[in-house]
Write a protein that binds this DNA or RNA. Structure first.
Lengths: 234, 234
DNA sequence: CAGTGGTCTAGACCACACC
DNA sequence: GTGTGGTCTAGACCACTGG
């Protein structure tokens, strides 16, 4: 853990606990320099992280204001949550039916997205995600075999991502493309949606800290169960 | 323009022009320090911008590789482009038909989103955005009258955002929620979509630098014309 | 091993907001 | 003017990659 990550964690906790209340200024950067015994550049980097999370907003000449005292919904799209399931589902019963679990060779699109060659084997997994006993999303996932040692159908039926965390894999980020689509045969069958129902499709590539792509997936979501929230900070 | 923005611009141009080809390393940070006569921190900040744009990625011990030689669609979601129309549309002919232009009082949802009271007047604007003579999106926009002095139907038929920039309004960021929906009567009429076609709806609240909300809007997009790209960096 | 990018420092100057 | 955050420097050390 770097110093600026540590400092961001400390300040984030103070905001969430209410020690730095909403719509007030946090201590200025000089004071934080003195408290943490680091240079101002390091403090600034820590504050930048919190700004990207939408917790604070800095203005030259004014100071740094606490915007929210809770992490935005957007956190659903962040951090450890590449699973396609939002944090809003915490406490609900989540199941995964594994419809397909295979090792195969990647087609051209998959080769390009995962930056691998055609003879580089990949897992191909199709799962139906079920929340509170109702179908929620249909996920089609491709992962290079060498990056996910020991993946099994059993693991896929629970949570691939908590397994990846356990074996110490670290994520750098993700590209996502979100669009609407007409539902197809598979959607009707598994998502139990009407023929005229649209789906929200999220296509994503997840990257490791060493920048290798580890997952290319398409998640087709019932339009009445899932939306997607984004926060842009300039 | 800061030094790191300038340097990012220069390097971006070299990538887009092919001077730094795809899948090759750009000069290392020390060489760039010498070329631009700046410190390495400044070079790193410039490269960070390009990394956030998805153009390059850096690996410790290896160097910085060119990933793409073109800007991703994602740029549509960034910076000054809250207009709902992507940068990918540059060079195309864009029209706006103003279907409704009114001043009214906000309903409860609008009051909450724009953080105003019920007696605070708002512009209510409905526009059909047309790209290359084909319907693209239907936008329903609400803005507090006092924040957008002198807005007219004439301005709305061109670009509200270039007007706002002209009068010196500065944006801090935006919250967006993206979801799929069935098309309704209005969509069929204006977007010329089939009854079974879905739409991609983007609901957004745009904030000023002083953190006042200036716009609450819903944009309904033809599912075959618009998608939404997001980049998450941890 | 040498070379790379990531982090961090201790200071400096500047742009901006408020009084 | 005073105080704030934004930028920038010149150098240092470290972590990682590759041969």
């Amino acid at each position: 853990m770097t110093k600026y990550e540590y400092i961001a964690d400390v300040i984030r906790k103070r905001i969430l606990s209410g020690e730095y209340p909403e719509n007030t200024l946090i201590p200025n950067q000089i004071e934080l320099v003195e408290e943490f015994n680091v240079s101002r550049m390091t403090i600034k980097k820590a504050i930048n992280i919190l700004m990207m999370e939408g917790l604070v907003y800095s203005q030259r000449g004014l100071g740094t204001t606490v915007l929210n005292n809770q992490l935005p919904e957007r956190s659903a799209t962040l951090a450890t949550d590449y699973s396609g399931l939002t944090k809003g589902l915490e406490g609900k019963e989540i199941q995964s039916n594994v419809i397909k679990f295979d090792v195969t060779f990647p087609n051209e699109l998959t080769q390009e997205k995962l930056k691998i060659s055609s003879h580089h084997p990949v897992y191909e997994i199709i799962r139906l995600r079920i929340v509170d006993e109702e179908p929620y999303a249909l996920e089609h996932t491709l992962m290079p075999v060498d990056l996910v040692p020991g993946l099994t159908k059993e693991i896929a039926s629970h949570s691939i991502y908590s397994y990846l965390e356990q074996i110490g894999i670290e994520f750098a980020g993700a590209h996502r493309n979100i669009h609407a689509d007409k539902s197809n045969e598979l959607d009707h069958q598994y998502l139990e949606c009407a023929i005229t129902d649209p789906v929200l499709e999220v296509e994503q590539v997840v990257y490791l800290k060493n920048s290798r792509p580890i997952e290319f997936s398409r998640s087709r979501n019932r339009y009445d169960k899932k939306s997607y929230t984004v926060l842009d900070v300039m």
